[in-house]
Structure formats: structure tokens, C-alpha cells
């Protein structure tokens, strides 16, 4: 096999020509979501009855701003990867499948972006 490394050999393999990237990204986001989702649940318990002023005070704290943005990024990336597999498993018509895969990816970016903007707007707003 000459000068190729093991990694170079498996890259771009498989029917989607993406090698192990999907699998690996799903695991990485899963590992990130273990502490992040536990943190979010812990925070959400005390956020339940809060009004907007208290929410603003909470989201303005730099640690909360950062962790919420990281949580949202991990959630929507992991969600997109998971829903992609569900579509690939159950939707067999080629047109419907491609449409749903495109929508899945675009909506994940749109909704994740909306969440980040919403977090930052309140955190940095006057």
C-alpha cells in the first residue's frame, strides 16, 4: 500500500464517501452532551418559575452564556446526525430522502443559529 497511512486509507470510504466521519462526530457530540445535558437539567430545575429579569441575570453570567451556546451547538449537531440516520433507514424514495436530508441539515443550522442569537441577544442586551 506504499506510503498511505491507515487513516488516509479509510477516509472517503463507504457509500456516502465520508469514511467514519459521521460515526465519529456522533460519538464526540454524545460525549460532550453527557456533562452539558446534566448541567442543563440542573439549571432548568431552578429556571422553571423564573421571570424574564431573573432569566436575563442567569444567561448574562459568562459561564452560563458559554455553556448554553456549547449545549445548543452539541444538541443540534447531534440531532442532525441522528435524524439523518433515521431518514436513511426509513425513507426509501430517492427524491423524498434527499429532500429530507437537505431540510434536516438546513433546519439544524437555522434553529441552532436562532438559539445562539437568542442567547447572545439577552446576554449582551442592555
Amino acid at each position: 500500500m506504499g506510503m498511505q497511512s491507515d487513516l488516509a486509507r479509510v477516509r472517503h470510504l463507504g457509500s456516502a464517501k465520508e469514511g467514519t466521519h459521521h460515526w465519529w462526530a456522533q460519538r464526540l457530540t454524545a460525549i460532550a452532551l453527557v456533562p452539558l445535558s446534566l448541567w442543563f437539567i440542573w439549571q432548568a430545575i431552578s429556571l422553571g418559575g423564573l421571570d424574564w429579569v431573573a432569566y436575563k441575570a442567569w444567561i448574562s453570567h459568562p459561564a452560563n452564556t458559554l455553556l448554553m451556546v456549547m449545549f445548543v451547538v452539541a444538541v443540534f449537531h447531534h440531532m442532525q446526525l441522528g435524524l439523518q440516520v433515521v431518514v436513511e433507514d426509513y425513507v426509501h424514495g430517492e427524491g423524498a430522502k434527499i429532500t429530507l436530508l437537505v431540510l434536516n441539515k438546513l433546519l439544524a443550522v437555522l434553529l441552532g443559529g436562532s438559539c445562539i442569537l437568542s442567547i447572545l441577544k439577552v446576554a449582551f442586551g442592555g
Binding site: V72, V75, F76, M79, C115, L117, S118
Partner: peptide, 17 residues
């Protein structure tokens, strides 16, 4: 189901904004 929950999380954060 959690993907639907992510929609409600988006709504909640957007409402605050």
C-alpha cells in the same frame, strides 16, 4: 422526541430574546 424538544428549547430561548 428530543428533537421535538429542541424545537421547544428554540421557542423558549427566542421568546426570551
Amino acid at each position: 422526541g428530543l428533537s421535538v424538544g429542541a424545537l421547544v428549547l428554540t421557542y423558549w430561548l427566542a421568546a426570551a430574546a
